[in-house]
Each structure stands twice: as C-alpha cells, then as structure tokens.
Design a protein around this nucleic acid. Sequence first.
DNA 1: TAATTACGAAACCAATCGGTTGCAAATGTA
DNA 2: TACATTTGCAACCGATTGGTTTCGTAATTA
Lengths: 106, 106
Amino acid sequence: MRRDVFQAIADPTRRAIIMLLAVGALTPNAIANHFDSSRQAVSKHLRVLTECEILRQEQQGREIHYHLNADKMKDLEKWLEQFKQLMAKRFEQLDTVLEQLKSKGK
Amino acid sequence: MRRDVFQAIADPTRRAIIMLLAVGALTPNAIANHFDSSRQAVSKHLRVLTECEILRQEQQGREIHYHLNADKMKDLEKWLEQFKQLMAKRFEQLDTVLEQLKSKGK
DNA sequence: TAATTACGAAACCAATCGGTTGCAAATGTA
DNA sequence: TACATTTGCAACCGATTGGTTTCGTAATTA
C-alpha cells in the first residue's frame, strides 16, 4: 500500500484534520465532532495519517491524543521547491533566448 | 468527480509528468517514453492533469503538445503556506507560555 | 491513394477508497 | 462489580482508480 504525504493530503477531510491538529493535539472524538462523517470514518483517516507518520499517537488513559508531526510535511515542501526550481531554470533559459534575439536585432 | 491539484499529485507518475513538463512542453508519446506504463495509461494521466487545468493542450498537426500551467500549482503552495502559518502561530503561543514560566520562576 | 503515425475514447478489470455497521477491549465511574 | 465511555478493528458496500486491450479518426508520408 502506497502511503505518503501526497496520497494523504489528497482527501479534503484529511487536509482539514491536518489543519485542526496544527493548532493542537486532539482525541478522535474531538476531531470527529468537527466533521459530518462518523467517528469511525474519521478514525480511518487518522490511521492513514498515522501510517505515513504525519500523526503520532499518545495514549493518556483511555484517550488517545493525536499529535501532528510537522516535519513530515517537509516532503511536500521539498517537492514543491524542486518544482519551482525547475520552473525558474526554464524562465532563465527563456530569458537567455530573448536576450539573444534582442542582440541579433541590433 | 473531484478534480484538484491535491488529487492530481497523489499519483507518482503524474508528479513525474509535472516535473517533465516543467522543463518544456512534450507530446503524449514523448512523455510515455519516459515511463514503463503504456501510452494509453499516460494519456489517462494527461487527461486528469488537463481536467484540473494543470496542463494545457496545444494541437500542432497530428501532434498535441502538453504545456504546464504553473499557476495552478499555487493552490498547493497556498495550502502549504496556510499550514505553516498555523504552525508558526502555535509555536508563538508556546513561546509565550515558556516566557511566562520563566518570569514565574524568578 | 494506401499505409503509417499520433492520438483520444470506450470497454473492461482488479485493487483501492471512503464510508457504514457491528463488535471487542480497555479504561474510567457508580 | 456493573455500567458507561473511548477507541480500534473487521466485514461489508458502492464508487473510483490506474491499468489494459481494442477501436476510430485525423494528419502525415510513401
């Protein structure tokens, strides 16, 4: 089973959960209260997020607090950065071409 | 059918296609040559990417050149930025708490 | 004109997804 | 001890996914 940040954030509910836990740790019930879906449905999302290490569980009595592991989001950040660098390089090359055309026109 | 950047980049092949086209426009065949999957499989990915406006088609004779619409990637960038801001705010609050603890200790 | 090439579209398939219901286990409370 | 609460897990379901094979069509080339 593929389990990475990219697949994790593909679902809108999971994105919302990430945002929620960015503010602070919560229990499954508390999280589920923020959504229309059932506790079990949310629990499944929590499992996916935990499996790809975006979330971390912390047992406290019978409650489980889900914490965000912000570091994992860097995978996404890295990819986006790589993409932006490629684009920048392309524009650089385009600039060179335009520069050459300009000097030819002289 | 949900069709957004998040769902688009969930697939590794599609991420690779985006990177490829960040360098320059290509035809479906040219793109497919970079992968193990068949031309038709790649074509399906191109359709998904086109439907969420990450790609733009440009007919040239019997060839179709797929161009990247880098702007669409900003949806992703925006979400990530929003997330990072939430995290920053959290650490800010944490800092305040630590500050208070420190002055109490005096 | 006939053959080839480039491509999208449709039909099909197994696997996965996101949801549900029902249950079991562990912890807390009366 | 009996009961309630919190939670994970398994079984099931319809929809979607990513892939394949096959076909049709339009543009090029011989």
